[in-house]
């Protein structure tokens, strides 16, 4: 069996390097939301490597790239429009709240 093509080999090595990096960095305390930002940033980098070199997306016809972009576009809409609801609710969570029962505001229950 012939040796693997070097671009694929390098991509694999880069993916494993990024895996080691994200695993190590997860144990480093960072301010605010930086841990999840770093973790997802590394995931995006890994996904781009797979898309570009394993799936050859950026060498695909324009129509194919448009289909892939459409998936991400609608995902962004899903998250953005949902965020306009959930992120604007003023609910202060203190640990685990009991589930609402629907009887909170009945007369004689104040």
């Amino acid at each position: 069996m012939k040796a693997p093509p070097l671009p694929l080999l390098f991509t694999w090595a880069a993916l494993l390097g990024l895996l080691a990096a994200t695993l190590g960095l997860a144990y480093v305390p960072m301010p605010g939301p930086m841990n999840v930002v770093v973790a997802l940033g590394i995931s995006v980098a890994k996904a781009l490597l797979v898309l570009a070199l394993f799936m050859k997306l950026f060498r695909a016809p324009a129509l194919t790239r448009a289909a892939a972009a459409a998936g991400l576009f609608w995902l962004a809409i899903l998250f953005a429009l949902s965020a306009t609801d959930y992120l604007t609710r003023k609910v202060e969570h203190a640990g685990d709240l009991p589930a609402p029962t629907g009887r909170e505001h009945q007369p004689g229950n104040r």
Binding site: T64, A67, A70, G71, L72, L75, L78
Partner: peptide, 10 residues
């Protein structure tokens, strides 16, 4: 396949 994968993303 890419169109199918776009639906899989969602």
């Amino acid at each position: 396949m890419w169109v199918f994968l776009a639906t899989e993303i969602l």
